[in-house]
Design a protein around this nucleic acid. Sequence first.
DNA 1: TAATATTTTTAACAAATGTTAAAAATATTC
DNA 2: GAATATTTTTAACATTTGTTAAAAATATTA
Lengths: 203, 203
Amino acid sequence: MGWGNFTFRKMGEKVVISLADCFQGYHFLNPVSIDRLEQISEKLNCKRNSVLIRQDKIQKDIYFLASGLARVYYETADRQITLDFVSPGGTLISMNSYVHDTPGYENIDLLEDSIVYKIDQKKLFTLYESDIAIANWGRKMAELEFIKAEQRTMSKLFNTAQERYAELLEKYPQYIQRIKLGYIASYLGVSQVTLSRIRANIL
Amino acid sequence: MGWGNFTFRKMGEKVVISLADCFQGYHFLNPVSIDRLEQISEKLNCKRNSVLIRQDKIQKDIYFLASGLARVYYETADRQITLDFVSPGGTLISMNSYVHDTPGYENIDLLEDSIVYKIDQKKLFTLYESDIAIANWGRKMAELEFIKAEQRTMSKLFNTAQERYAELLEKYPQYIQRIKLGYIASYLGVSQVTLSRIRANIL
DNA sequence: TAATATTTTTAACAAATGTTAAAAATATTC
DNA sequence: GAATATTTTTAACATTTGTTAAAAATATTA
Protein backbone atom coordinates (compact mmCIF):
# COMPACT_ATOMS: atom_id res chain seq x y z
CA MET A 1 0.00 0.00 0.00
CA GLY A 2 1.03 3.61 0.12
CA TRP A 3 1.98 6.27 -2.33
CA GLY A 4 4.18 4.56 -4.89
CA ASN A 5 7.83 5.47 -5.18
CA PHE A 6 7.48 6.41 -8.79
CA THR A 7 8.12 9.86 -10.16
CA PHE A 8 5.15 11.43 -11.82
CA ARG A 9 5.10 12.59 -15.38
CA LYS A 10 3.75 15.99 -16.32
CA MET A 11 0.56 17.05 -14.60
CA GLY A 12 -2.44 15.73 -16.37
CA GLU A 13 -0.63 12.82 -17.93
CA LYS A 14 -1.89 9.53 -16.67
CA VAL A 15 0.68 7.49 -14.78
CA VAL A 16 0.71 3.80 -15.70
CA ILE A 17 2.96 1.31 -13.95
CA SER A 18 3.58 -2.13 -15.39
CA LEU A 19 2.79 -5.21 -13.35
CA ALA A 20 6.44 -6.29 -13.42
CA ASP A 21 7.44 -2.89 -11.99
CA CYS A 22 4.85 -3.33 -9.24
CA PHE A 23 6.52 -6.62 -8.36
CA GLN A 24 10.05 -5.24 -8.54
CA GLY A 25 9.02 -2.36 -6.33
CA TYR A 26 9.48 -4.74 -3.42
CA HIS A 27 12.48 -6.77 -4.42
CA PHE A 28 14.46 -7.90 -7.42
CA LEU A 29 12.82 -10.87 -9.09
CA ASN A 30 14.23 -13.06 -11.83
CA PRO A 31 12.33 -13.21 -15.16
CA VAL A 32 11.16 -16.79 -14.62
CA SER A 33 9.55 -15.94 -11.28
CA ILE A 34 8.02 -12.75 -12.67
CA ASP A 35 6.48 -14.82 -15.40
CA ARG A 36 5.02 -17.23 -12.85
CA LEU A 37 3.45 -14.33 -10.96
CA GLU A 38 2.08 -12.80 -14.14
CA GLN A 39 0.43 -16.10 -14.96
CA ILE A 40 -1.67 -15.94 -11.82
CA SER A 41 -2.59 -12.29 -12.39
CA GLU A 42 -5.63 -10.81 -14.03
CA LYS A 43 -5.91 -7.29 -15.42
CA LEU A 44 -9.02 -5.32 -14.51
CA ASN A 45 -10.32 -1.97 -15.71
CA CYS A 46 -12.30 -0.42 -12.88
CA LYS A 47 -14.56 2.59 -12.77
CA ARG A 48 -14.27 5.43 -10.30
CA ASN A 49 -16.08 4.60 -7.04
CA SER A 50 -15.65 0.86 -7.52
CA VAL A 51 -15.27 -1.01 -4.28
CA LEU A 52 -12.32 -3.37 -4.38
CA ILE A 53 -12.25 -4.62 -0.81
CA ARG A 54 -14.95 -4.55 1.86
CA GLN A 55 -14.29 -5.10 5.53
CA ASP A 56 -17.23 -7.48 5.89
CA LYS A 57 -16.16 -9.75 3.02
CA ILE A 58 -13.29 -12.16 2.82
CA GLN A 59 -10.98 -10.70 0.23
CA LYS A 60 -7.91 -12.89 0.04
CA ASP A 61 -6.54 -11.66 -3.25
CA ILE A 62 -3.97 -8.90 -3.66
CA TYR A 63 -4.33 -6.04 -6.10
CA PHE A 64 -1.62 -3.93 -7.65
CA LEU A 65 -2.64 -0.49 -8.78
CA ALA A 66 -1.26 0.20 -12.26
CA SER A 67 -3.05 3.52 -12.70
CA GLY A 68 -5.64 5.61 -10.89
CA LEU A 69 -6.06 6.33 -7.21
CA ALA A 70 -7.42 4.39 -4.23
CA ARG A 71 -8.46 5.13 -0.68
CA VAL A 72 -8.09 2.71 2.24
CA TYR A 73 -10.39 3.26 5.19
CA TYR A 74 -11.79 1.67 8.33
CA GLU A 75 -15.41 2.03 9.26
CA THR A 76 -17.65 1.64 12.29
CA ALA A 77 -21.33 2.38 12.70
CA ASP A 78 -20.71 6.05 13.32
CA ARG A 79 -17.28 6.81 11.89
CA GLN A 80 -15.09 6.28 8.90
CA ILE A 81 -11.35 6.80 9.12
CA THR A 82 -9.09 7.07 6.10
CA LEU A 83 -5.88 5.15 6.61
CA ASP A 84 -4.10 5.73 3.37
CA PHE A 85 -4.28 6.91 -0.20
CA VAL A 86 -2.65 4.66 -2.75
CA SER A 87 -1.18 5.84 -6.04
CA PRO A 88 0.02 3.83 -9.06
CA GLY A 89 2.62 1.21 -8.23
CA GLY A 90 1.09 0.64 -4.81
CA THR A 91 -0.47 -2.51 -3.43
CA LEU A 92 -4.06 -2.93 -2.30
CA ILE A 93 -4.38 -5.62 0.30
CA SER A 94 -6.35 -6.53 3.35
CA MET A 95 -3.51 -8.21 5.20
CA ASN A 96 -5.76 -9.95 7.68
CA SER A 97 -7.86 -11.43 4.91
CA TYR A 98 -4.83 -12.34 2.82
CA VAL A 99 -3.14 -14.13 5.71
CA HIS A 100 -6.05 -15.63 7.61
CA ASP A 101 -8.81 -16.05 5.04
CA THR A 102 -11.15 -14.10 7.31
CA PRO A 103 -12.75 -10.68 6.89
CA GLY A 104 -10.21 -7.94 7.48
CA TYR A 105 -10.51 -4.38 8.66
CA GLU A 106 -10.06 -2.32 5.55
CA ASN A 107 -12.34 -1.04 2.87
CA ILE A 108 -10.66 -0.02 -0.36
CA ASP A 109 -12.41 2.16 -2.94
CA LEU A 110 -11.12 3.61 -6.16
CA LEU A 111 -11.30 7.39 -6.30
CA GLU A 112 -10.55 7.47 -10.04
CA ASP A 113 -10.97 5.17 -13.01
CA SER A 114 -8.15 2.72 -12.44
CA ILE A 115 -6.29 -0.23 -13.86
CA VAL A 116 -5.56 -2.93 -11.30
CA TYR A 117 -4.00 -6.38 -11.43
CA LYS A 118 -5.52 -9.02 -9.24
CA ILE A 119 -3.29 -11.80 -7.94
CA ASP A 120 -4.95 -15.04 -6.94
CA GLN A 121 -3.97 -15.68 -3.31
CA LYS A 122 -4.43 -19.44 -3.41
CA LYS A 123 -2.17 -19.80 -6.42
CA LEU A 124 0.32 -17.38 -4.89
CA PHE A 125 0.49 -19.50 -1.73
CA THR A 126 1.25 -22.51 -3.91
CA LEU A 127 4.12 -20.63 -5.53
CA TYR A 128 5.45 -19.68 -2.09
CA GLU A 129 5.93 -23.37 -1.36
CA SER A 130 7.79 -24.19 -4.55
CA ASP A 131 9.69 -21.05 -5.62
CA ILE A 132 12.08 -19.73 -3.01
CA ALA A 133 12.60 -16.46 -4.91
CA ILE A 134 8.86 -15.80 -4.78
CA ALA A 135 8.75 -16.82 -1.12
CA ASN A 136 11.40 -14.20 -0.38
CA TRP A 137 9.63 -11.68 -2.56
CA GLY A 138 6.47 -12.27 -0.53
CA ARG A 139 8.48 -11.85 2.66
CA LYS A 140 9.86 -8.58 1.38
CA MET A 141 6.37 -7.40 0.48
CA ALA A 142 5.13 -7.99 4.03
CA GLU A 143 8.23 -6.40 5.56
CA LEU A 144 8.04 -3.28 3.42
CA GLU A 145 4.30 -2.90 3.93
CA PHE A 146 4.97 -3.12 7.65
CA ILE A 147 7.50 -0.32 7.41
CA LYS A 148 5.18 1.87 5.37
CA ALA A 149 2.40 1.37 7.89
CA GLU A 150 4.85 2.13 10.69
CA GLN A 151 5.84 5.38 9.03
CA ARG A 152 2.21 6.42 8.80
CA THR A 153 1.76 5.60 12.48
CA MET A 154 4.87 7.57 13.42
CA SER A 155 3.77 10.56 11.41
CA LYS A 156 0.38 10.55 13.05
CA LEU A 157 1.87 10.22 16.52
CA PHE A 158 4.52 12.92 16.27
CA ASN A 159 3.39 15.48 13.74
CA THR A 160 0.51 17.91 14.03
CA ALA A 161 -2.36 17.75 11.57
CA GLN A 162 -1.10 21.05 10.16
CA GLU A 163 2.39 19.66 9.54
CA ARG A 164 0.99 16.52 7.97
CA TYR A 165 -1.29 18.50 5.71
CA ALA A 166 1.60 20.67 4.56
CA GLU A 167 3.59 17.50 3.86
CA LEU A 168 0.77 16.04 1.80
CA LEU A 169 0.42 19.25 -0.20
CA GLU A 170 4.10 19.38 -0.98
CA LYS A 171 4.48 15.74 -1.81
CA TYR A 172 1.32 15.04 -3.78
CA PRO A 173 -0.23 18.32 -4.96
CA GLN A 174 -1.75 16.70 -8.01
CA TYR A 175 -3.73 14.18 -5.97
CA ILE A 176 -4.73 16.26 -2.98
CA GLN A 177 -6.78 18.62 -5.07
CA ARG A 178 -8.89 15.74 -6.32
CA ILE A 179 -9.66 14.24 -2.91
CA LYS A 180 -12.60 15.34 -0.77
CA LEU A 181 -11.58 17.30 2.32
CA GLY A 182 -13.57 14.97 4.54
CA TYR A 183 -11.37 12.08 3.47
CA ILE A 184 -8.20 14.07 4.03
CA ALA A 185 -9.42 15.28 7.42
CA SER A 186 -10.04 11.73 8.62
CA TYR A 187 -6.61 10.75 7.29
CA LEU A 188 -5.08 13.55 9.32
CA GLY A 189 -7.12 12.58 12.36
CA VAL A 190 -9.12 15.79 12.73
CA SER A 191 -12.64 16.92 11.90
CA GLN A 192 -13.32 18.54 8.58
CA VAL A 193 -14.02 21.82 10.34
CA THR A 194 -10.56 21.75 11.88
CA LEU A 195 -8.99 21.03 8.49
CA SER A 196 -10.80 24.05 7.09
CA ARG A 197 -9.34 26.13 9.88
CA ILE A 198 -5.88 24.78 9.10
CA ARG A 199 -6.28 25.67 5.46
CA ALA A 200 -7.49 29.15 6.34
CA ASN A 201 -4.32 29.68 8.38
CA ILE A 202 -1.95 28.31 5.78
CA LEU A 203 -3.30 29.96 2.65
CA MET B 1 8.47 -2.53 42.54
CA GLY B 2 7.12 -3.87 45.76
CA TRP B 3 3.49 -4.72 45.55
CA GLY B 4 3.35 -6.07 42.02
CA ASN B 5 6.53 -8.06 42.43
CA PHE B 6 5.23 -9.60 45.61
CA THR B 7 2.03 -10.73 43.98
CA PHE B 8 3.99 -12.15 41.08
CA ARG B 9 6.31 -14.23 43.24
CA LYS B 10 3.49 -15.38 45.43
CA MET B 11 1.64 -16.70 42.42
CA GLY B 12 4.89 -18.41 41.39
CA GLU B 13 4.02 -17.93 37.78
CA LYS B 14 7.15 -16.93 35.99
CA VAL B 15 6.34 -17.67 32.38
CA VAL B 16 9.16 -19.11 30.29
CA ILE B 17 8.69 -19.84 26.61
CA SER B 18 11.13 -22.04 24.72
CA LEU B 19 12.86 -20.69 21.66
CA ALA B 20 11.28 -23.35 19.47
CA ASP B 21 7.85 -22.27 20.71
CA CYS B 22 8.70 -18.66 19.88
CA PHE B 23 9.47 -19.80 16.33
CA GLN B 24 6.38 -21.96 16.03
CA GLY B 25 4.27 -19.07 17.25
CA TYR B 26 4.41 -17.76 13.71
CA HIS B 27 4.22 -20.87 11.63
CA PHE B 28 4.85 -24.58 11.71
CA LEU B 29 8.50 -25.35 11.19
CA ASN B 30 10.10 -28.74 10.60
CA PRO B 31 12.72 -29.93 13.11
CA VAL B 32 15.62 -29.52 10.70
CA SER B 33 14.80 -25.87 10.06
CA ILE B 34 14.22 -25.22 13.76
CA ASP B 35 17.64 -26.62 14.41
CA ARG B 36 19.17 -24.31 11.80
CA LEU B 37 17.52 -21.31 13.46
CA GLU B 38 18.64 -22.40 16.90
CA GLN B 39 22.20 -22.59 15.66
CA ILE B 40 22.21 -18.89 14.81
CA SER B 41 20.61 -17.95 18.15
CA GLU B 42 22.22 -16.84 21.36
CA LYS B 43 20.63 -16.94 24.80
CA LEU B 44 20.97 -13.81 26.93
CA ASN B 45 20.08 -13.13 30.54
CA CYS B 46 19.24 -9.46 30.84
CA LYS B 47 18.69 -7.28 33.85
CA ARG B 48 15.68 -5.08 34.40
CA ASN B 49 16.12 -1.69 32.67
CA SER B 50 18.49 -3.12 30.07
CA VAL B 51 18.21 -1.39 26.74
CA LEU B 52 17.89 -3.89 23.91
CA ILE B 53 17.30 -1.61 20.96
CA ARG B 54 17.97 2.12 20.57
CA GLN B 55 16.45 4.23 17.83
CA ASP B 56 19.76 5.92 17.04
CA LYS B 57 21.68 2.67 16.62
CA ILE B 58 21.51 0.13 13.86
CA GLN B 59 20.04 -2.95 15.45
CA LYS B 60 19.59 -5.56 12.78
CA ASP B 61 19.18 -8.59 14.97
CA ILE B 62 15.87 -9.99 16.19
CA TYR B 63 15.16 -10.91 19.78
CA PHE B 64 12.64 -13.38 21.11
CA LEU B 65 11.46 -12.79 24.64
CA ALA B 66 11.46 -16.08 26.56
CA SER B 67 10.58 -14.54 29.91
CA GLY B 68 10.20 -11.09 31.41
CA LEU B 69 8.57 -7.98 30.03
CA ALA B 70 9.57 -5.33 27.49
CA ARG B 71 8.39 -1.91 26.42
CA VAL B 72 8.61 -0.55 22.89
CA TYR B 73 8.58 3.23 22.51
CA TYR B 74 9.34 6.07 20.13
CA GLU B 75 11.05 9.20 21.30
CA THR B 76 11.58 12.78 20.19
CA ALA B 77 13.32 15.65 21.96
CA ASP B 78 10.25 16.49 24.00
CA ARG B 79 8.10 13.37 24.00
CA GLN B 80 8.20 9.65 24.46
CA ILE B 81 5.36 7.48 23.23
CA THR B 82 4.90 3.86 24.25
CA LEU B 83 3.89 1.71 21.30
CA ASP B 84 3.61 -1.70 22.84
CA PHE B 85 4.31 -3.93 25.79
CA VAL B 86 5.72 -7.33 24.93
CA SER B 87 5.25 -10.41 27.06
CA PRO B 88 6.99 -13.82 26.84
CA GLY B 89 6.73 -15.48 23.45
CA GLY B 90 6.78 -12.11 21.72
CA THR B 91 9.32 -10.76 19.29
CA LEU B 92 11.47 -7.66 19.77
CA ILE B 93 12.44 -6.16 16.48
CA SER B 94 13.13 -2.82 14.86
CA MET B 95 11.69 -3.72 11.48
CA ASN B 96 13.30 -0.81 9.70
CA SER B 97 16.71 -1.76 11.03
CA TYR B 98 16.17 -5.45 10.36
CA VAL B 99 15.14 -4.84 6.77
CA HIS B 100 17.24 -1.87 5.74
CA ASP B 101 20.31 -2.02 7.99
CA THR B 102 19.65 1.58 9.05
CA PRO B 103 18.59 3.04 12.40
CA GLY B 104 14.93 2.39 13.04
CA TYR B 105 12.33 4.20 15.08
CA GLU B 106 11.91 2.08 18.15
CA ASN B 107 13.58 1.88 21.51
CA ILE B 108 13.07 -1.33 23.40
CA ASP B 109 13.76 -1.61 27.12
CA LEU B 110 13.24 -4.50 29.48
CA LEU B 111 10.93 -3.67 32.38
CA GLU B 112 11.85 -6.86 34.26
CA ASP B 113 14.78 -9.25 34.44
CA SER B 114 14.33 -11.20 31.23
CA ILE B 115 15.60 -14.06 29.14
CA VAL B 116 15.93 -13.25 25.46
CA TYR B 117 17.25 -15.10 22.44
CA LYS B 118 19.11 -13.07 19.88
CA ILE B 119 19.00 -14.16 16.25
CA ASP B 120 21.82 -13.02 14.00
CA GLN B 121 20.20 -11.18 11.09
CA LYS B 122 22.99 -11.73 8.62
CA LYS B 123 22.96 -15.48 9.16
CA LEU B 124 19.16 -15.47 9.06
CA PHE B 125 19.21 -13.75 5.66
CA THR B 126 21.55 -16.45 4.42
CA LEU B 127 19.12 -19.12 5.57
CA TYR B 128 16.28 -17.31 3.78
CA GLU B 129 18.11 -17.86 0.50
CA SER B 130 18.71 -21.56 0.97
CA ASP B 131 15.87 -22.93 3.10
CA ILE B 132 12.41 -22.33 1.64
CA ALA B 133 10.69 -23.36 4.86
CA ILE B 134 12.61 -20.68 6.74
CA ALA B 135 11.91 -18.16 3.98
CA ASN B 136 8.20 -18.81 4.40
CA TRP B 137 8.55 -18.71 8.16
CA GLY B 138 10.17 -15.28 7.82
CA ARG B 139 7.35 -14.20 5.54
CA LYS B 140 4.83 -15.33 8.09
CA MET B 141 6.64 -13.46 10.83
CA ALA B 142 6.44 -10.19 8.88
CA GLU B 143 2.81 -10.78 7.95
CA LEU B 144 1.74 -11.55 11.50
CA GLU B 145 3.70 -8.66 12.96
CA PHE B 146 1.96 -6.44 10.43
CA ILE B 147 -1.42 -7.69 11.60
CA LYS B 148 -0.54 -7.16 15.26
CA ALA B 149 0.57 -3.61 14.55
CA GLU B 150 -2.60 -3.05 12.55
CA GLN B 151 -4.70 -4.22 15.47
CA ARG B 152 -2.96 -1.77 17.76
CA THR B 153 -3.59 1.02 15.26
CA MET B 154 -7.26 0.05 14.93
CA SER B 155 -7.70 -0.04 18.65
CA LYS B 156 -6.17 3.39 19.06
CA LEU B 157 -8.29 4.84 16.26
CA PHE B 158 -11.63 3.46 17.31
CA ASN B 159 -11.59 2.89 21.03
CA THR B 160 -11.47 5.49 23.74
CA ALA B 161 -8.56 5.59 26.16
CA GLN B 162 -10.98 4.41 28.83
CA GLU B 163 -12.01 1.36 26.80
CA ARG B 164 -8.41 0.54 25.99
CA TYR B 165 -7.37 0.82 29.60
CA ALA B 166 -10.13 -1.55 30.64
CA GLU B 167 -8.96 -3.96 27.94
CA LEU B 168 -5.38 -3.81 29.22
CA LEU B 169 -6.53 -4.44 32.75
CA GLU B 170 -8.46 -7.49 31.70
CA LYS B 171 -5.78 -8.86 29.41
CA TYR B 172 -2.64 -8.31 31.46
CA PRO B 173 -3.70 -7.71 35.06
CA GLN B 174 -0.45 -9.13 36.39
CA TYR B 175 1.67 -6.84 34.24
CA ILE B 176 -0.29 -3.61 34.34
CA GLN B 177 0.18 -3.20 38.05
CA ARG B 178 3.93 -3.27 37.60
CA ILE B 179 4.11 -0.68 34.85
CA LYS B 180 4.40 3.04 35.58
CA LEU B 181 1.24 4.99 34.81
CA GLY B 182 3.20 7.39 32.63
CA TYR B 183 4.11 4.54 30.28
CA ILE B 184 0.55 3.28 30.16
CA ALA B 185 -0.80 6.79 29.56
CA SER B 186 1.46 7.32 26.56
CA TYR B 187 0.46 3.89 25.26
CA LEU B 188 -3.17 4.94 25.51
CA GLY B 189 -2.41 8.28 23.89
CA VAL B 190 -3.41 10.51 26.80
CA SER B 191 -1.57 12.46 29.48
CA GLN B 192 -0.92 10.85 32.80
CA VAL B 193 -3.36 13.29 34.41
CA THR B 194 -6.11 12.09 32.10
CA LEU B 195 -5.31 8.47 32.91
CA SER B 196 -5.62 9.28 36.59
CA ARG B 197 -9.04 10.78 35.87
CA ILE B 198 -10.02 7.63 33.99
CA ARG B 199 -8.93 5.44 36.88
CA ALA B 200 -10.84 7.62 39.34
CA ASN B 201 -13.99 7.10 37.27
CA ILE B 202 -13.59 3.36 36.84
CA LEU B 203 -12.67 2.34 40.36
C1' DT C 1 11.64 2.44 61.32
C1' DA C 2 12.63 6.92 59.84
C1' DA C 3 14.06 9.61 56.09
C1' DT C 4 14.12 10.22 51.30
C1' DA C 5 12.75 9.56 46.70
C1' DT C 6 9.41 8.37 43.42
C1' DT C 7 4.88 7.88 41.69
C1' DT C 8 0.04 9.02 41.54
C1' DT C 9 -3.84 11.93 42.34
C1' DT C 10 -6.21 16.20 42.61
C1' DA C 11 -7.25 21.06 41.54
C1' DA C 12 -7.50 25.23 38.73
C1' DC C 13 -7.07 27.13 34.59
C1' DA C 14 -6.05 27.65 29.51
C1' DA C 15 -6.17 26.09 24.96
C1' DA C 16 -7.54 23.23 21.30
C1' DT C 17 -10.87 20.70 18.95
C1' DG C 18 -15.48 18.80 18.17
C1' DT C 19 -20.44 19.73 17.17
C1' DT C 20 -24.20 21.78 14.95
C1' DA C 21 -26.03 24.65 11.70
C1' DA C 22 -26.06 28.02 8.23
C1' DA C 23 -23.79 30.47 4.41
C1' DA C 24 -20.70 30.44 0.59
C1' DA C 25 -18.36 28.26 -3.05
C1' DT C 26 -17.92 24.75 -6.37
C1' DA C 27 -19.36 20.89 -9.26
C1' DT C 28 -22.82 18.29 -11.75
C1' DT C 29 -26.87 17.48 -14.43
C1' DC C 30 -30.45 18.37 -17.55
C1' DG D 1 -26.44 28.08 -18.84
C1' DA D 2 -29.78 27.60 -15.30
C1' DA D 3 -31.10 24.62 -11.72
C1' DT D 4 -29.72 21.33 -8.48
C1' DA D 5 -26.64 18.87 -5.71
C1' DT D 6 -22.42 18.55 -3.38
C1' DT D 7 -18.55 20.28 -0.98
C1' DT D 8 -16.20 23.71 1.78
C1' DT D 9 -16.01 27.51 4.91
C1' DT D 10 -17.45 30.16 8.75
C1' DA D 11 -19.54 31.10 13.28
C1' DA D 12 -21.01 30.16 18.03
C1' DC D 13 -20.83 27.34 21.62
C1' DA D 14 -19.77 23.21 24.55
C1' DT D 15 -16.63 19.79 25.88
C1' DT D 16 -12.53 17.54 26.39
C1' DT D 17 -7.95 17.30 27.35
C1' DG D 18 -3.49 19.27 28.37
C1' DT D 19 -0.57 22.01 31.56
C1' DT D 20 1.26 23.38 35.80
C1' DA D 21 1.76 22.86 40.45
C1' DA D 22 0.84 21.10 44.88
C1' DA D 23 -0.75 17.37 47.89
C1' DA D 24 -1.20 12.58 48.85
C1' DA D 25 0.21 7.97 48.49
C1' DT D 26 3.56 4.57 47.83
C1' DA D 27 8.20 2.67 47.34
C1' DT D 28 13.12 2.70 48.37
C1' DT D 29 17.14 3.32 51.12
C1' DA D 30 19.95 3.82 55.10
